[in-house]
Nucleic acid binder design. Structure first.
Length: 247
DNA sequence: CACCAGGCCGTGC
DNA sequence: GCACGGCATGGT
């Protein structure tokens, strides 16, 4: 299967997993500690079966993306098999609010601090990411003290408007984007990420600083429609590829 | 010291 | 509509 678990779990679509010294990965999801070494381990766990989208044929998608052009072929061959994880709405929303003008390592650290401060300790030194209710009394001072910086008021606005997150499911993609952008600190890029990773909307095509380089250098004049019907997955391949590219 | 990181907001034109 | 500076923090 050659899944690239490092890229899937540590490459910027989730910030909840840690890699252990023995090479396994662990996280608290769905109220429990989850620990896997290979993707195959997830088949035994109904929660992870859904989380890793194991019912979808990623090998087929990968083949079709690879056939599209030489750049995607190079990207797919360099990156291996990716998957689009199914994360919950609130976790994805806060995660990608944290992501703006930030780097993956620091986002992961902030995610961890929010979990320790507002989440539950479900096992020894293992904390769940908080729910909106668990964060309802959070203050800007507290959040700034944790290191989220100028994103503190954005997080508070997301908590205040968390009911809005349930309305997004019923909306068409463009309307869903606009709905998420009603939350302060959510623009086009962050909304795209939330829709892909928190709502499994595969039409999303987030343009961050890396993807802007890819598009201007290799796809001048093109936009996300070129990559249909694999916008999100193609974007993930190109993002991983350019970010890990040497020289 | 500078510049950057899975950007967004407010302002000015 | 587009361009620009500011914004917290930590790494290089």
């Amino acid at each position: 299967m050659e899944e690239n678990l490092d890229e899937i779990l540590l490459g910027g679509q989730t910030f909840s997993w840690k890699k252990n010294d023995d090479g396994s990965f662990s996280s608290v999801l769905g109220g429990k500690v989850r620990r896997i070494t290979r993707l195959e381990d997830a088949y035994d766990d109904p929660f992870l079966y859904d989380y890793f989208d194991l019912g979808y044929d990623y090998e087929k998608a990968k083949r079709e993306i690879r056939e599209k052009d030489e750049i995607l072929k190079e990207a797919v061959d360099a990156v291996g098999t990716l998957r689009i994880l199914r994360q919950d709405h609130f976790t994805a929303t806060i995660s990608f609010i944290l992501s703006q003008n930030n780097n993956i390592k620091r986002i992961t650290g902030l995610y961890e601090r929010l979990s320790r401060r507002y989440g539950r300790e479900v096992d020894e030194d293992m904390y769940s990411f908080p729910t909106p209710d668990e964060m309802k009394d959070a203050t800007e001072e507290e959040l700034r003290a944790l290191g989220v910086g100028f994103r503190a008021p954005f997080i508070l606005d997301a908590i205040a408007k968390c009911a809005l997150l349930d309305e997004v499911d019923a909306l068409e993609f463009d309307q869903a984007m606009e709905k998420l952008k009603e939350i302060k600190g959510i623009g086009d890029k962050v909304a795209s990420c939330i829709l892909i990773f928190g709502y499994h909307r595969t039409e999303g095509f987030p343009m961050d600083v890396w993807m802007k380089k890819v598009m201007s250098e290799y796809y001048p004049g093109k936009d996300k429609s070129y990559f249909a019907p694999y916008e999100a997955l193609s974007q993930q391949y190109l993002f991983s590829w350019i970010r890990n590219k040497k020289e």
